[in-house]
Amino acid sequence: MSAPANPHRGDLILFMAATFTASWAAWAVAIALGGPAANPAALVPHLLGAFGPMVGALVLRIRRARRGAPVPEHAVRFRPAHLVGAPLLLVLASATVLGAVLLAHVAGGPGVSAEGALAAVQGSGGLAVFLVNMVVAGPLAEEPGWRGTAYPRMRASMGRFRIGLVLGVIWAVWHLPLFFLDGTVQHQLGLLSPSGVLFAVSSIPMTMLVCCAYERAGVLAAIAVHFATNTTMVLLGVHAPVAQAMIMGFQVIVVAVLLATQRRGSGPTAEPAARPQPAVG
């Protein structure tokens, strides 16, 4: 039996086109300027590129408003309970990374260094600047797009596992220019190095984890899990392939547990589709 046609196919194509155009154009400028590590002027287009998914989300928001269309059926509306669920998922995501790194150390990988975490914070200009950068440059700039906009529309015709594969691959490809931008984590890893390849592959379990968070507590939880994972990895200085592989394994286990414990009726279709939604939609 063939898969059902996606009524949001046009929206998804427009979202992806707007997202990739906005991000890759900005990053192309940053690369032409030599990258943030060589030229401070490249920092602005580098940061602006992270907001490509937000641009895509706004484009679809405007389009939906002009058409008077309802919020997608699978969009997760904000509920007060999300203010509790999101922090719990944040802690879970951070613990997943920490546990994986500790296990990787037992298996012969590098250990946890407080000096490395302190250097990462100081190198960003202090704790406040570090935290703001970790919230804005990735989670806040991306999640209203990838999870708040693309995911509900993909969910109309795809299962969770398939979305994890498809959106994970798209997310990995979207990051590709950063491997050529001096001053980024991806550039330090190297595109064809074991760590670079694992970074790309890790987009799939990471996508599944953040999508599970979105289904449980909306965009707020997606931002929280994305932030917790990125921040913990930066503070722990995760670069070794063994640690990256362990993190992916832990994420797969957590995703399986979250899916197995999700209550019936608690998913994104628990409320009518036409109910107003404060998120991007």
Rank of each mutant, 00 (worst) to 15 (best):
A107G: 12
P87L: 11
P177N: 06
R160P: 15
R66E: 11
L127A: 11
A213L: 07
M158L: 15
S202Q: 09
R216G: 08
G68H: 07
V135S: 08
C211Q: 09
L103G: 01
G111Q: 14
F199D: 08
A65G: 10
A273D: 13
G237R: 06
L192G: 08
M206H: 08
A213Q: 04
L165V: 05
V135H: 04
A273Y: 00
M134D: 06
V135P: 00
I31Q: 09
P110Y: 02
W171Q: 04
A42I: 10
G49P: 03
T19F: 00
G164E: 05
L89A: 05
V169M: 08
A243Q: 13
A100V: 06
P110C: 09
L236F: 00
G265M: 10
Q277I: 04
G108Y: 00
I170E: 04
P36W: 00
E143A: 11
G159M: 11
V135A: 14
P53M: 13
A150Q: 06
P36N: 04
A150H: 01
M154S: 09
I204F: 01
I31R: 10
T149D: 09
R275F: 03
P4K: 10
M246R: 05
P87S: 10
H46Q: 14
F250H: 07
L140W: 03
E73F: 01
R153A: 08
P40W: 03
F15D: 00
M206T: 15
A26Q: 06
S202G: 13
G265K: 08
S23C: 02
G108N: 12
L198R: 10
V84K: 11
G265T: 09
L131E: 08
A65K: 13
V101I: 09
W174S: 14
G68Y: 04
W146C: 02
R263W: 08
F179T: 08
G10D: 13
T261E: 11
V280Q: 04
A120S: 07
H239M: 11
T19P: 00
A32Y: 06
P276D: 10
L92S: 12
L14R: 09
H46I: 04
S23A: 15
M208Q: 12
A279E: 07
